[in-house]
Design a protein around this nucleic acid. Structure first.
Length: 599
RNA sequence: GCGCCUGUAGCUCAGUAGGACAGAGCAGUGGCCUUCUAAGCCAUUGGUCACAGGUUCGAAUCCUGUCAGGCGUGCCA
């Protein structure tokens, strides 16, 4: 549809900002010299950002206020002087004014908007993509113990982690997603013991006269354990004394079974990991010993009371931590140290861990170990994912795997759908505890559901494009940069400017590891589009059936329609890309309740 | 006790490298379907940004203190 040849210059918000800064710096330095100042300004001294209120233009700087003292003149006067020299307009901006206490506001020229739209059509799914960044990032998240179904809290970590990965990759980072599989610890043992108990009960009910064991105190009471026991029996048959089956076999089975369920749930959320890293394999590889040796060489280890301590207090931790207990067993921390060291050894330059907020006390010792190995503290970045409370009316639904009484992530997905589930997890900052309101997410009326709203904008755009294509086919004028001059509504220009900001939104979301910024962006732009759509009901993009009277094709403004369709294509591209970054489907069509009701 | 996170509209939350009258969704109220999908739109109600000081031309945002909630403070994992 788009004629690529029409482009010479690439224009987006970054380009406009760079051009304005260049000119701005020149003038600021001019004035500086004339006033006998020795200050030389550079691009980084100019803060340009989109103002909150559209009356203040498209880009705004507080430069005059920040530097009025240096120039020895009031902000307003300095701003006026700069504006005078900037000239009333260039091909980048169509207006520049002073306002308030000394702001300088720029309004972008329409030609920049048209070029920006062209840029979006060119880039399509690549619109918003950042340039390749150096380094390799290892992103570890979920890492739920393989002891049963994932709960809602894991779900939040999974959705946030996956979205961060998508966003960071899109922003140009090399990201590997990794799941640390705790298949070596006591929890797995507890699960195996639990399965054993259930299995023997099962065998007894079938064969009778079988010696059962007491259900382990720290066992898992969930019904899923009984299912696992049944599967185990299906494989091994009824063996009253478990002859020929050792605990290792049972444990491997337990882990495999639990992991199967976890992977299924993750797949339902469209989440995949490149690496599942086994803690058991880590132990068997001798990595713990190696890591400990390195620490010993560097003098960060000592023995006391029969235990081996890591001198983490030398690196900002509040006290030293045990690596090897007096009974000779390694601590979880010792394994974790070796694990993180191994990540560096595998060539990653920056580690990001997503942990549940209850683990925050663990951060100082982990960073201490990173430092002890000679890496920078900040080479390990820990993001804490706060708790999720499920709320249904006044009822707070409790979670806890061992009690067996919890809402699983599977339940939640089954009730609300994967898209809605993901939306609620990523629409808020990972740093705040959230109440997941089921009454809203489950609402029978989708109008109350913000996740659906975000998708609807995309579906609506697709619908118009499809209809336009069937109505006009190839009869529309060729779309190139000049066609956009036929955009006539202020809303179209407003929305275009927001579409042009998408790359900045992506890079901001990536830098701050904040998927919710993408969600907010989606909500805003969908609202703008729906508002436009309804407002111009009397001046529609496509002729209504009632307008398609005799010879209508001859009077219909084909240029305007071509421009609008291309512009809607831009909207569809941006919302589609944004939805994808959040791991949500970008539907081309959504069945309305009315339609569904008619079927 | 000490440490980390949080306190913004009735509810759930944005907004914090200081910036221009504090935002959104949901809930409430009043309107809009001979439809490019009304899963929508328009209007409207609603806030001493927990409280008290301080820094600044300017503070929800930075500093100090107080109060409230959550979490942590294992030779558990």
């Amino acid at each position: 549809m788009w004629d690529n040849v029409a482009y010479v210059r690439l224009s987006d918000m970054n380009y406009c900002m760079a051009q304005i800064k260049k000119e701005f710096v020149k003038i600021a330095n001019e004035i500086s010299v004339e006033n006998g100042l020795e200050i030389i300004f550079s691009d980084s001294d100019i803060m340009l950002s989109p103002p909150k209120i559209k009356e203040h233009g498209d880009l705004s700087t507080n430069f005059a206020m920040m530097n009025s003292k240096k120039f020895g003149m009031p902000p307003v006067k300095l701003a006026a002087e700069i504006v005078k020299r900037l000239g009333s307009h260039t091909d980048i901006f169509s207006a520049v004014t002073t306002a308030g206490p000394g702001f300088i506001n720029f309004t972008l020229s329409d030609s920049q908007i048209y070029q920006g739209l062209g840029r979006i059509l060119d880039a399509q799914t690549a619109w918003g993509r950042g340039t390749t960044k150096p380094g390799r990032i290892n992103l570890e998240y979920v890492s739920a113990n393989p002891t049963g179904p994932m709960h809602v809290g894991h779900g939040r970590g999974a959705a946030v982690g996956d979205s961060i990965a998508r966003i960071m990759r899109f922003a140009g980072y090399d990201v590997t997603c990794e799941y640390y599989l705790n298949d070596a610890g006591k929890q797995v043992e507890n699960l195996a013991e639990s399965i054993k108990a259930r299995y023997l009960e099962l065998v007894k009910s079938e064969v009778g006269n079988v010696q059962t064991i007491e259900f382990p105190e720290d066992g898992y009471h969930g019904a899923y354990v009984i299912d696992m026991a049944k599967s185990f029996r299906d494989i091994h048959g009824n063996k009253p004394a478990l002859e020929g089956i050792d605990m290792e076999t049972l444990k491997s089975f337990a882990v495999a079974e639990a992991l199967k369920g976890i992977k299924k749930t993750l797949a339902d959320l469209d989440i995949t990991f490149e690496v599942f890293y086994s803690e058991k394999a880590l132990h068997e590889s001798g990595a713990l010993k190696k890591a400990q040796d390195i620490l010993a060489q560097r003098g960060h280890i000592y023995e006391q009371d029969g235990a081996v301590f890591f001198r983490s207090s030398n690196f900002g931790d509040e006290k030293d931590r045990v690596l090897v207990k007096s009974d000779g067993a390694a601590t979880y921390f010792a394994a974790d140290i070796a694990y993180h060291l191994d990540k560096f050894n595998r060539g990653y330059t920056h580690l990001i861990d997503l942990w549940g907020a209850d683990h925050h006390g663990y951060i100082p010792r982990m960073k201490a170990s990173i430092e002890a190995f000679g890496h920078e503290r900040d080479d390990l970045e820990v993001l804490l994912v706060q708790f999720v409370s499920l709320v249904k009316g006044d009822e707070k639904l409790a979670m806890g795997k061992r009690s067996g009484n919890f809402v699983t992530l599977d339940d939640l997905i089954a009730e609300t759908g994967a898209d809605v589930t993901r939306w609620y997890f990523v629409a808020k900052s990972h740093d705040v505890a959230i109440d997941f309101d089921l009454s809203e997410a489950l609402s029978q009326d989708p109008r109350e559901n913000p996740a659906r709203y975000a998708q609807y904008g995309h579906a609506r755009a697709c619908s118009i494009l499809k209809k336009g294509s069937s109505l006009f086919g190839d009869n529309l004028p060729v779309v190139n940069e000049t066609v956009f001059t036929h955009l006539s509504c202020p809303e179209e220009i407003e929305i275009s400017k927001v579409l042009m900001q998408f790359p900045q939104v992506v890079s901001d979301a990536a830098e701050s590891r904040s998927p919710h910024k993408i969600a907010n962006f989606l909500t805003e732009i969908s609202r703008m589009f729906n508002s436009y759509y309804t407002r111009y009901k009397d001046d529609p993009v496509l002729p209504k059936p009632t307008q398609q009277v005799e010879n209508w094709e001859e009077t219909w403004d084909l240029h305007k329609t071509a421009a609008r369709l291309a512009w809607i294509e831009c909207f569809k591209t941006v919302t589609g890309n944004a939805l994808n970054l959040l791991g949500l489907n970008a539907p081309e069509y959504m069945v309305s309740p009315e339609e569904a009701g008619n079927e």
